[in-house]
Amino acid sequence: MDAFLVWFDDFWAVYSNLILTLGINALLALSIWLTLACGVLALANAAFMGIGAYAGALATMNYDSPFALSLAAAMAAPSLVALAIGLPVLRLGGVYLAMATLGFGEVVRIVILNTDSITGGALGLNGIPQYTQWWHVLLALAIVVFVLARLQRSRTGRAFEAIKVDETAASLMGVDIRAHKLLAFVLGAAIAGLAGALNAHLTFFIGPQEYGFDRGVEILTMAILGGIGSLIGPIIGAFFLTLLPEVLRGLADFRLIVNGFILVAVVLFLPNGLWDPARFRHWFGRRRS
């Protein structure tokens, strides 16, 4: 038993950061799942994560606010921003919306860079208290999954589904398209902000570069790779994409190449994502009969 505890302490000392990152990335993937669930391709989640991270970290550092309050601020700030930009931006569709939200992400990054007195500019924020414990992340993930699962089965969830499949049909059934898209956008922003603050209070340091284009694409990839048909998909995608580079560490210089190949293979052979119950049934159903 003692031997196990010693082993576990070692293990946790080395890997705790990675394990908590798994949870945080899962939250991020779920945040974009929400908009994807109603057919909206918005790529502002990295920016919302950044707004949440800065709001939370600044609340903790400048106002000594309790952790719970910092997290609340980290969810409120991006939600308000999402509400303000959502109304004009969500009128756009398809790639145009993706472009507009990417543009918004750049604006956020530049604003953070140029408000040195508050955000520390390019140097970022240093010395953020490390409040995030494993159970914070676990609890946040559990609550978000629970809320989203309830939402998915509610009237609102069915309206999302209808909008995703056919907007015209949905509005002819009396679904208020704009209100539902805005709801998904704002809720997604809140989740991304929560993930940002949990991450900020884990990593000690945050800088504007962390919330740019790369992160936005990474969040989208996690959700799509895992599969957006259900809530499990984005979580699996986040785990996969976070763990893969670590598992492949032994390959040294070839790591990123193999990483890329595996992603391409997944997309080619599992077009609906890693989590695709219909395909599983197809594969295993055959063998049984």
Partner: peptide, 27 residues
């Protein structure tokens, strides 16, 4: 807006049927 018009009692069967093909008939 269209959802308010539906609410008042004006329902349209759109051209090309606008069926939600990935949902069941019941849904």
């Amino acid at each position: 807006p269209s959802h308010r018009i539906v609410q008042l009692g004006l329902s349209q069967v759109a051209e090309g049927r606008a069926i939600l093909t990935r949902l069941t008939v019941r849904e």
